Simulated assay, not measured.
Amino acid sequence: MYTKQEVSRSKQEFWTAFGWYMKPVPSAEGIPVNWKNYKTGIPHLYFRMQAERDFAAVSVVIQHPDPGIGELLFEQLLALKPLLENELQETWAWLPVECTAQGKAIYRVERKLEEVNVLEKESWPEIISFLKPRIIALDAFWSNARYGFEGLI
């Protein structure tokens, strides 16, 4: 069993290691990028990476406070699904809309790796090998696709 401090410290160490590992990798446009805190430039549209006790995941998350705009952003992403899947070279899960306790709609497209544990350092190479190509592919997708989202907000 891990204490909260151990969990927090281990996750912080992992993301620091991931950041150092990814630091020399430029974006699709050839510029430096903070891969862990990737900025899409579109408010309320995020590329997220997770590393937890029982899985790792990469996702595109739309969490707009205006339900209509959130749905519009998701429809645009859905229209670009062939481009996204071509860049990723795999199929991701298009999850049903979730509603938070505050009534916000959350749209999510994700890929998960099960049975890895960020708290065990021996899992880190597998987690990094899972996250790295997918966040790079999302960046390559976004370098072309972002223009289709700019006029929607």
Rank of each mutant, 00 (worst) to 15 (best):
M1A: 15
M1F: 13
Y2N: 07
K4T: 15
E6Q: 15
E6C: 04
V7Y: 14
S8H: 01
S8G: 06
R9K: 15
S10V: 14
K11H: 06
Q12V: 03
Q12C: 00
Q12F: 01
Q12H: 07
E13M: 07
F14H: 09
F14V: 12
T16D: 13
F18T: 13
G19D: 11
G19F: 12
G19V: 03
G19L: 08
W20H: 15
W20I: 09
W20A: 15
Y21S: 14
Y21G: 01
Y21T: 15
M22K: 01
A28R: 10
E29F: 00
G30M: 09
I31F: 05
N34E: 09
N34A: 04
W35M: 02
N37P: 01
K39E: 03
G41F: 11
I42F: 05
P43E: 06
P43T: 00
H44D: 06
Q50W: 02
Q50F: 08
R53S: 06
R53G: 01
D54T: 14
D54F: 05
F55A: 08
V58S: 08
S59V: 05
I62P: 02
I62T: 11
H64R: 03
H64L: 02
H64V: 07
D66T: 10
D66N: 13
D66V: 11
G68P: 03
G68Y: 09
G70R: 04
E71H: 09
L73R: 02
F74C: 07
Q76F: 00
L77K: 03
L78V: 10
A79F: 10
K81A: 11
L84E: 08
E85S: 07
N86K: 14
L88Y: 10
Q89E: 12
E90G: 04
E90P: 00
T91R: 12
T91W: 04
T91V: 02
W92L: 03
W92Y: 03
A93Q: 08
L95H: 05
V97H: 06
V97I: 13
G103M: 05
I106T: 01
Y107I: 10
Y107S: 02
R108W: 00
R108A: 01
R108Y: 03
R111H: 12
R111C: 06
R111N: 11
R111A: 13
K112H: 08
K112F: 04
L113G: 00
L113I: 07
L113N: 02
L113H: 04
L113F: 03
E115P: 01
E115S: 13
E115G: 04
V118P: 02
E120A: 11
K121R: 14
K121L: 07
E122H: 13
S123K: 05
S123I: 02
W124V: 09
W124D: 06
P125K: 07
I127Y: 04
I128C: 11
I128R: 09
L131H: 12
P133G: 00
I136V: 15
I136K: 14
L138W: 12
D139S: 02
A140P: 00
W142V: 00
W142C: 11
W142I: 12
W142L: 06
S143P: 00
S143R: 05
N144R: 15
N144S: 11
A145S: 09
Y147Q: 12
F149H: 05
E150T: 14
E150V: 15
E150I: 15
E150Y: 03
G151A: 10
L152W: 11
L152D: 12
I153K: 14
I153G: 14
